[in-house]
Amino acid sequence: MEVLTTGTKAVVTRTANRRSEGPVRAPRQGGVRRAVWVGAFLAPAVALVAALLVVPFAVTAYRSLFDDNGITARFVGLANYRSLLTDPDFGRSLLNTVMWVVGTLVLPVLLGLLLAVLTHSVRWGAVARTAVVIPYALSGSATALLWTYLLKSDGAVNQTLSAVGLGGWQQDWLLHWPLNTVVMIVATTWQSTGAALLLFLIGLQTIPAETIEAARIDGAQGLQMFLKVIVPQLRPMTVVVVGMSIVNSLKTFDIVWLLTQGGPGTASETLALTMYRQTFTLNRYGYGAAVSVVLTAVVVAASWLYLRRQVQPQRGGAA
């Protein structure tokens, strides 16, 4: 929202400057001083991004060109990337990552939206919202520990099923693919729906009461009101929630590591786990670096494509 507003202002300012360039010319000295000030304010942010993101990425990309065991390194060019393409484990890891992206887009975002709308203006809504938001306050490792006790073969879920006479429904929840990936997505949904719910609630509060009232006078209600009025009004917030979900799902690590360690075998590995295993378990620093370069490229490409499509300057509004 803020970005749009600033962008719009910038467009207006640029247009205004262009129009006024001819007759009134700003003094050169003032322009330099302004540039110095702008540079001074930008410098800390640029330095931080360069030191914490750009330089490490460049070092990682450079390291991916070596066969490196942490003690000795040998230049191998693009051999690590060629190995990736022929590695069946990498293919499975990529597929799991796609499952995570789809799963965490569909479940937490839709559930968060539905729960926000349903509990927004009802009497006991606050109680329901609190129940959904509390898991969001738990750490990833606490959540994983809890779900481990639930989903182990002799865990609470199977014991409960057995106790109520549904023993036939018992499963090895974490031992078979794709079931293990699906239940881990469900566990993540349990934890992260609260965040989506909060953001959508904020979005709901920004919808002008007049808009809802006008729609109601025009005869809109129920599902029609939700789909034709509320959802379009929530678009800016949906952009944020979906964008965050995409990035978070692409770098899924903690819950998978703690529940299955990417196993059995490498069945439930995501790209982030493959990177960790290659680097820190197998001590193949070059290969792990290659996986992280691919992962970074995927995250940046997905974020850029999504935001480029969704966040556009409101040219009409500025005119």
Partner: peptide, 17 residues
């Protein structure tokens, strides 16, 4: 060699399932 063992252990884990 460690890399061989780590990979084979994962195969054996898959076998146990």
């Amino acid at each position: 060699p460690p890399v061989l063992i780590e990979g084979n252990v994962q195969d054996l884990s898959a076998f146990m399932i």
